[in-house]
Design a protein around this nucleic acid. Structure first.
Length: 846
RNA sequence: GCCGAAGUGGCGGAAUGGUAGACGCGAAGGUCUCAAAAACCUUUGGGCUUACGCCCGUGUGGGUUCGACUCCCACCUUCGGCACCA
């Protein structure tokens, strides 16, 4: 199953310390291949990481990583995401928290279906066997997962609750059905996921994909837009918050109607073109109005002589894919309707055009064209020979024509009664006037659309709806849940959902009237699954309800969520929405699902994305050669976790060496050390030991694994020197080693456990607490004071700790090196930074 | 185009406005060895100097400050996200 690279077995690369001259030394050699599986088994059989809902005297800490899709292999990217997260969870456990660290599988999705189509494998079996394989590979990480909580979203025990929530949402109007766009391949006669569309073409057959409107299911996330913008309660990276804000894209402006009644024979779609603008101050500069091709008034307004052209244009726009239409590269196109609209402010009649740069889905689907103050309108007007009228004058403008749109604020001109005032004030005054006259009103619009959850796919949660000719859209009664996804289905080569072909699935009696009806064959977006899995982890075995409310209360909101930034606006926004919807339905009491969020970066190799084909990097050979602990530590050491990093085959040696050094240092025969140590030497050792703990605690809390590792490496280097000096007692030495092992434990759990045992401690190191430290013990008797002349380093002095300003400056002025600069010069200023430096500012004298 | 992050030795990277380059890799020299590997020790930003030392140096150009990798302004480059949003 797992492919092994052929060259690896033949090379004679030896594991660290591989060659062993004698059998007696063998026993004390660091051998991860032996001890890692040993401890993994022990931890598992002891249930060391099984979490209770309550531990007396401890606060709960829910450490969650974004669960993986079961693609089949745990790759190095998984290791980079999951092992530092595990180290943090372990650290929090040692900080005295009752930590829950679960893991599961986000098991619905397209790849399973692709495997089914291309290789004829059943998605169900494919997914479950991938999960088995990945579970085994995950266990190589030595992570502190509580596997008793494992869940997989493709199992009916899980997805039935998707259906349950769907029904609750439907009842409340949060789930609703309307026409929505889908990517349609005309050749394969199927809809495609966005991932299946490559450069506007069907990934399978290369046919140009078109947009097709069809009835689909939505979740009403936009109702929560304003609440989703509030992010004061959550401790998330500013970057992610910003991306969410931009995605929600709230903009305030004015909706204003342009009367077109005299050009309409059919007024069923109204008599005004409603437009939305954020720049109502420019309304006197409107010289045309543009409708989206899908706008209901587009056809109705078209005058007889323009009909042929307009019909052709609209038809053509419909053929274009979304990708083509929204490409900014593309030249703007448009067509005249022959109709005119009246600007209510100045009574002017301006032409109405249709242009596909106007999007039906944003704002009102119509824009007022102000070419002087909007660059797109400027380009459009130039192309169609429409007038460009300046109404907000740049400073110093004297009536010359513009070469591009002027978008900044200015002074109102050509604006009737508003002439001469600033456009900032004009915005408000004009809006007031429009509202007073009933021409329009202030409006808020959002970039965020409702969440389209329908997928015309097989491998997902069936949507629990039945369509009856008599009763209409009928929800599946709760007691009939789950609607089971049928097994053993046939996949057509086109990728059309097999659900539509299964008679016994589709044809069902109406739950209300019992007449023959048809079941919904769309399934749900997999982001539905991942919107609430963190709740299910608290009580994964519960059968009667989606989760145990009492247990959720003890664990959620998740204290620490960790995962990639690629989910900034999809998963993370959907999960926040889902939580708020569940709250409004009474399922949970809190407002946000994830209190803290940390995003790791991406791991690269040779500064390129790691990919199976072009740039492979398999964790298993690395584990075989160096051990899990080395791999874990190296991934944490190679750079700041949030910035990702670049893999180096060479640099991992350094970490391997360090663990070997840790091993060797810990197992030294302490009987050669004195019983009574030298007090000065022991005070020095204390200083080193306490300051390393201070650094480790501060850095681990903030996910700064690389500097944690650096601090521990410095510590082992120091310990080597301390041993050489031979002045500390065996007791002091043993304490120093104990401290080392406790700090290593979260990072390299296996070696720490083994050494903990071998140094005479009782199982398990992972149930110990982080060592304490005393700030007072970290200060030394002397401190190095840097002496600068005019900010440049000229000397260093070792002075007693806590030296006063006067003493320090006096000592500095006594220094020969300093006198070279002060002799004959005028001292202007002396600066003293306690514990750091003296800076003497001189002017070269005469 | 807009938004965001980042630019530091040969390499990965470290530095509450206060000794730039911690820690590690690599490299060079050495110890051990018949030899090699491993391990250990020393050196390792550039330039000048016999030496004490001195000068330069954190993408570029300015600025603030006694003192700037760090703060401010402008620009360049790379990466990530969004993109005809009215």
């Amino acid at each position: 199953m797992t492919s092994t690279s052929p060259d690896r077995t033949s090379t004679s690369e030896s594991a660290a310390g591989d060659t062993t001259p004698t059998g007696t030394e063998d026993r004390n050699r660091y051998n991860p291949a032996e001890l890692e599986p040993k401890w993994q088994k022990r931890w598992e059989s002891d249930g060391l990481y099984r979490t209770e809902d309550h531990e007396p005297g401890k606060d709960n800490w829910y450490a969650l990583t974004m669960f993986p899709y079961p693609s089949g292999d745990v790759h190095i990217g998984h290791w980079f995401a999951y092992t530092p997260a595990d180290a943090h969870a372990r650290f929090m456990r040692m900080q005295g928290y009752n930590v829950m660290h679960p893991q599961g599988f986000d098991a619905f999705g397209l790849p399973a279906e692709n495997a089914a189509i291309s290789r004829g494998i059943d998605p169900h079996k494919w997914t479950l066997s991938n999960m088995d394989n990945m579970r085994r590979q995950f266990k190589l990480m030595g992570a502190s997962y509580d596997w008793s909580r494992e869940l997989a979203t493709c199992l009916p025990d899980y997805y039935r609750w998707n259906q349950y929530f769907f029904l609750k949402f439907f009842e409340k109007g949060i789930a609703y059905r309307k026409d929505g766009p889908a990517n349609w391949c005309p050749k394969d006669q199927t809809t495609l996921a966005n991932e299946q569309v490559k450069d506007g073409e069907c990934e399978r057959c290369g046919t140009t994909v078109v947009r097709r409107e069809m009835p689909q299911w939505f979740f009403g996330i936009t109702k929560y837009a304003d609440e989703l913008l509030e992010m004061d309660q959550i401790d998330w990276p500013e970057k992610i918050k910003l991306m969410q804000r931009n995605w929600i894209g709230r903009s305030t402006g004015v909706t204003i109607g342009f009367d077109v009644s005299e050009y309409l024979s059919d007024t069923s779609a109204g008599t005004r073109i409603e437009t939305f603008t954020t720049r109502i101050d420019t309304v006197y500069g409107v010289t045309f109005v543009v409708l989206a091709p899908e706008h209901p008034l587009a056809a109705k307004l078209t005058q007889a002589d323009r009909k042929t052209d307009v019909d052709a244009y609209i038809d053509n726009a419909r053929r274009q894919s979304e990708i083509e239409r929204t490409s900014t590269e593309r030249e703007k196109t448009g067509v005249d309707t022959g109709a005119f609209a009246t600007n209510p402010l100045n009574g002017e009649k301006v032409p109405v055009l249709i242009g596909d740069y106007v999007l039906a889905s944003y704002g009102t689907g119509a824009v007022m064209g102000v070419p002087a103050h909007d660059q797109r309108d400027f380009v459009f007007a130039t192309k169609f020979g429409l007038p460009i009228r300046v109404v907000v004058a740049p400073e110093g403008w004297n009536g010359e024509a513009l070469t591009e749109a002027y978008v900044a604020p200015g002074t109102q001109v050509n604006s009737g009664e508003f002439n001469g005032i600033s456009s900032v004030d004009g915005k408000e005054m004009i809006a007031d006037k429009i509202e007073a006259n009933g021409w329009g009103q202030r409006t808020i619009t959002y970039h965020l659309r409702d969440w389209l959850i329908s997928r015309q796919r097989y491998w997902g949660t069936p949507i629990p709806i039945i369509y009856c000719d008599h009763c209409g859209t009928v929800p599946v009664p709760e007691q009939d849940l789950p609607v089971i996804l049928p097994d053993n289905v046939e996949f057509t080569p086109t990728g059309q959902s097999p659900l539509t072909l299964i008679e016994e699935f589709v044809n069902v009696p109406c739950p209300q009237c019992n007449r023959p009806s048809r079941r919904e064959t769309d399934t749900m977006d997999t982001f539905v699954d991942s919107s609430w899995y963190h709740l299910r982890f608290t009580s994964p075995a519960t059968l009667e309800e989606p989760f145990d409310t009492g247990r959720v209360k003890q664990w959620v909101p998740v204290h620490q969520y960790m995962g990639g930034a690629e989910h900034a606006v999809m998963h993370l926004l959907y999960a926040r929405f889902f939580n708020k919807a569940l709250r409004d339905l009474g399922f949970v009491e809190f407002d946000e699902p994830y209190t803290r969020l940390f995003n790791q970066g991406t791991l690269t190799k040779d500064h390129m994305k790691i990919s199976k084909r072009a740039n492979p990097l398999n964790p298993e050979p690395i584990v075989e050669r160096f051990g899990t602990d080395t791999l874990r530590c190296y991934l944490m050491f190679l750079g700041p976790w949030d910035q990702g990093g670049d893999w180096s085959d060479q640099a991992i040696n350094g970490v391997s060496r360090w663990l070997n050094r840790t091993w060797e240092l810990s197992l030294r025969d302490t009987s050669v050390l004195p019983n009574n140590g030298d007090p000065d030497a022991e005070r020095d050792l204390d200083r080193i030991a306490h300051s390393v703990t201070g650094r480790v605690i501060a850095d681990m809390r903030q996910f700064k694994f690389n500097t944690t590792m650096a601090a521990l490496m410095e510590y082992t280097n120091e310990l080597g020197r301390v041993w050489e000096a031979g002045k500390v007692s065996s007791k002091a030495w043993a304490e120093a080693i104990e401290r080392l092992l406790l700090h290593v434990a979260p990072l390299a759990p296996h070696i720490a456990e083994e050494l903990w045992e071998q140094t005479g401690h009782s199982y398990s190191v992972h149930q110990q607490e982080t060592p304490t430290w005393d700030e007072a013990k970290t200060v030394s008797d002397t401190e190095t004071i840097v002496v600068q002349i005019n900010g440049k380093l000229r000397d260093q002095l070792d002075l007693p700790a806590g030296v006063s300003q006067e003493q320090a400056i006096a000592a500095a002025l006594k220094s020969e090196k300093i006198q070279r600069y002060t002799d004959g010069a005028q001292i202007i200023k002396e600066i003293f930074v306690p514990g750091r430096l003296v800076n003497i500012v001189v002017r070269p004298g005469k």
